[in-house]
């Protein structure tokens, strides 16, 4: 099936411990899906394994972007295929400015004999920054170096806006954000919503979903999805708490 992000029977281990257990999920392009679940349930593992982190061993399963299985590809190839991961803890790259970093990432998408046109690049960059309400001085700062939590997340969203992925996974993008920063980041993501982007928003709290309203909510527990439903599911989960999730998981396991 094309025009979807399809995760099929994904099994992932770290060392001897199996984290994802036959995990399956489909996100059609144009939709925003949320994954909620308690800590330690495998949400971040899902994000990192999809992106190709070398510490996560994929024992079986597929991640299919618009019909193509990307699991045999290196992390950078997956990125160039259109998968973007907004990190929960973005890394610092001292001495490399945001402008140069994004430019390098865009150049990596061009054929070897082509180079980005600098004036066009800056025009596009500034336009996205204005959209995300980011000060232009930001571009000359080193990537995430000394950034506040809010700045780091905005920097992630700026990169996402510039790289224009087909599918984006946002891993706990709300962590470490106060409510104002959260609103700005959510606005950024919302502005990118549309038929060209499918997004998977991973979060521990319902709060983020007040601002990025998902089309579908999935509840995850112990390495798999235990319940899926419309956006109201997030509210139900919030009121019933994660104990309820354990009960659901018991039902899934028994069925």
């Amino acid at each position: 099936m094309s025009n979807t992000l399809e995760i099929k029977n994904l099994n992932v281990s770290i060392g001897d411990k199996q984290i994802l257990k036959d995990f399956s999920l489909t996100v059609p392009k144009g939709e925003v899906h949320a994954i909620m679940g308690p800590n330690g349930t495998g949400k971040s593992t899902l994000a990192k394994a999809m992106a190709g982190h070398p510490d996560y061993e994929v024992t079986s399963g597929e991640v299919i972007i618009d019909g193509e299985n990307i699991m045999e590809l290196e992390a950078d190839e997956r990125s160039r295929e259109g998968l973007f991961l907004a990190f929960q803890y973005p890394m610092e790259i001292p001495g490399v400015t945001i402008a140069n970093f994004i430019r390098a990432a865009l150049n990596a998408r061009l054929p070897d004999d082509e180079e980005l046109n600098a004036p066009d690049y800056y025009k596009a960059l500034y336009a996205k920054m204005d959209m995300l309400k980011i000060d232009r001085k930001f571009t000359s700062r080193s990537v995430n170096d000394g950034f506040s939590g809010g700045e780091k997340k905005r920097c992630e969203i700026l990169q996402m806006a510039m790289l224009e992925p087909k599918y984006a996974v946002l891993d706990e993008t709300d962590s470490g954000l106060d409510i104002d920063a959260l609103k700005i980041v959510a606005e950024g993501v919302n502005s990118m919503r549309g038929e060209n982007l499918g997004a998977l928003v991973i979060t521990h709290y319902q709060r983020l979903l007040d601002y990025i309203v998902p089309d579908v909510v999935h509840v995850m527990y112990d390495g798999r999805i235990v319940k899926s439903g419309p956006k109201e599911l997030a509210l139900e989960l919030e009121s019933k708490g994660y104990e309820w999730v354990k009960e659901l998981a018991g039902e899934v396991a028994a069925s």
């Binding site: 992106a51 190709g52 982190h53 070398p54 290196e74 992390a75 950078d76 997956r78 990125s79 160039r80 973007f84 991961l85 990190f87 973005p90 890394m91 610092e92 790259i93 001495g95 490399v96 140069n100 970093f101 994004i102 390098a104 990432a105 990596a108 998408r109 990169q159 790289l163």
Partner: peptide
């Protein structure tokens, strides 16, 4: 750090030379 840069599309070598 290398993984972070690779996730943005840079090859391992490009990521290293950038850092």
């Amino acid at each position: 750090q290398i993984f972070y840069m690779q996730q943005r599309g840079l090859s391992e070598g490009e990521a290293m030379s950038l850092s």
